[in-house]
Every structure is written in structure tokens, then in C-alpha cells.
Simulated scan of single mutants.
Amino acid sequence: MPVTLLGAAEVRALAADLGVTPTKKLGQNFVVDANTVRKIVHLAGVQAGEHVVEVGPGLGSLTLAILETGAEVTAVEIDHRLAERLPATASAHGVPQGALRVIDEDALRVVQLPGEPEVLVANLPYNVSVPVLLHFLETFRSIVRGVVMVQAEVGERLAALPGSKVYGAPSAKAAWWGTWRLAGTVSRQVFWPVPNVDSVLVGFQRTDPLGSETERALTFRIIDAAFQQRRKMLRQALAGVLGGSAAQASAALERAGIAPTARGEELTAAEFLRIARAHSPEPR
């Protein structure tokens, strides 16, 4: 029996049956278009036999499209009603037993997943998309690639390169884990309810970490400080992190080969790491 997908009428019927009204607090906008979820799965390159982790499966539209490929899915859902119903929905749509596992938990608190998922595919809640992405990349090193749907503004930041107007802390932190690209746009009309923001698809491919976990923690602190005061020169913006004064920050920046008069938006993740190493070198 082939896996079948949800249509718009069934999405609304499922929500009504569960007494679910999509909420802004949880960032819930359910996809009601089968072509869109198939497009996401295609762009992620999901293959039969792969293990995919999905965050925020909701009523199951994207979940079923992933399962349609013959992949296994571990779905993490914070809404108890949705988490409880999803296995029954999957079974009713032809999903083989054992192909879907549901974790009823806040994605930001998940630190263990069954098996070792290789792919992350998700329609991420707008309000927590960047924290969830960074948490999953940090926590689950088995994830090597993925495609996520996020608010357009967030997606543009994730994929931005140094020098871009939208390059910021999310851009630099995401680059620690791999390469990012804008993979496509998504019409507002494929969602229920229709959101008041545009969405994009962002793809990523993991690369080797730029440094150690200790170095990452310091590098991310430096990145945060640089972009909290992005109009200031680094010698001023980083004073609090690099010793307490602009002079100490300047010295660390010069050791790293970075101009103290530069600004955070000019630097790559690797250059932020150089600053961290110049400030607090690890034994080698």
C-alpha cells in the first residue's frame, strides 16, 4: 500500500477533530499543499532507507511526504495533541509500522534521538527556527545535511555571506557547522492559516567543525558581542569579551591578524575563531 498525502480538507478536519487552533505562540502554520511538501523532500535529497529527523511535524503533511520516499522518520513535536495523533494519521495513510517514531517534547530540550538521523527536514516555527537549528547541529553530529522552511528574513540571514546587509550572528554561527544556500521560495497560500510573512527553503551541508567545542563556545560569545553593537569597531564591540578594555581587544585582534577598526559584518566564522584563539589559545 503506497503512502498517501494529506489534502487541505483533511488537514482542517484533523485540526477540528483535535480541537487544534493554530497558535502564534507555537509558530503553527500548517502546510496544506502536497506539491510543496514533495518539493521540500526532493530538495533535501531524501532516499529510501535514510533516517530523517523532522521538527514540528504538526498534523503530518511533510511527515508523510518524507515517509513516501521509504525513509524512516523521527518527529519531534511540542504539542501533545499533535504528537499523540500523528502515528494514527501515518498508519491511516499507508505508512509501514516502525517507519515513524514520535518524540513528544520541546525540540530545544531534546538531547537524545533514537538511531543516528542523517538528514534534518522541517517546517520550522518562525519564532525559534535559528535556536532549533543550532541546537540540533551542535547536539546531533550524525546530521549531515537538510532542508528547512523558515521565515524569508531568517533564511536570508542564514545563507548570507560577510559584507551582506543581512549578514549577522545567525549567519556566522551557521557557517561554523557547514555551508548554507537559499533553495527556493514558498507561497503564503500553501499554509493554513495564511501567514503574514514570506517563507523560503534553506539547504545546508555539514562540514568539519572549524574548531573544538571549547573554541566554539568562545567564538560564539565573540560573534554575539560583535553583532550586538554592529556599528562599532571591533576594538570597542569586543572589549568586554577580550579583556575588558579597547586596548586589550585591539591587541587580541592584532594577534589574530584582524584590523581593530573592522566591524563584525566583515568577518567570516573562521576569522572570528582566529580572534578566539588569539585571546585564549588552546594547548596544541
Rank of each mutant, 00 (worst) to 15 (best):
L5R: 15
L5V: 04
L6H: 01
R12I: 06
L14S: 09
A15G: 02
A16M: 07
V20H: 03
V20M: 07
K25F: 06
F30G: 11
V31Y: 05
V31H: 09
V32C: 04
N35S: 10
N35E: 10
T36Q: 14
V37A: 13
K39W: 05
G45S: 03
G45K: 06
V46W: 03
E50T: 07
H51M: 04
V53H: 02
E54P: 14
L59V: 14
G60H: 12
S61I: 11
L62M: 11
L67F: 06
L67Y: 09
E68W: 09
T69Y: 13
G70M: 11
V76H: 09
V76P: 08
V76S: 08
R81D: 07
A83K: 08
A88L: 12
T89R: 06
A90K: 01
A90L: 05
S91R: 13
S91Q: 14
A92Q: 15
A92P: 08
H93W: 12
V95Y: 05
P96I: 02
Q97E: 13
Q97G: 01
G98Q: 11
V102E: 08
D104N: 13
E105A: 14
E105L: 10
R109W: 05
R109L: 12
R109K: 14
V111Q: 14
P114Q: 01
P114S: 00
P117Q: 03
V121T: 03
A122Q: 02
N123T: 10
Y126A: 08
V130Y: 00
L133V: 13
H135P: 05
F136A: 01
L137P: 02
E138W: 15
T139W: 12
R141A: 12
V148T: 06
M149I: 10
V150K: 09
V150Q: 10
Q151E: 12
V154W: 10
G155P: 14
R157Y: 13
L158I: 11
A159M: 00
L161F: 06
L161S: 08
K165T: 12
K165D: 12
G168C: 07
A169C: 01
S171T: 05
A174Q: 04
A175F: 05
A175S: 13
W176R: 10
W177E: 03
W177Y: 15
G178C: 00
W180L: 10
T185A: 15
V186A: 02
R188Y: 03
Q189S: 14
Q189H: 11
V190W: 05
V190S: 01
S199Q: 04
T207W: 00
D208Y: 08
D208F: 06
T214E: 12
R216T: 04
R230Y: 04
K232I: 02
M233L: 02
L234H: 09
A237K: 14
A237D: 05
L238F: 10
A239I: 01
G240I: 09
G240C: 00
S245K: 10
S245Q: 06
Q248T: 04
S250V: 11
A251M: 13
A252P: 10
A256R: 09
P260M: 10
R263S: 01
E266P: 01
A270L: 09
E271A: 05
E271G: 00
F272D: 00
F272Q: 00
S280M: 10
P283V: 14
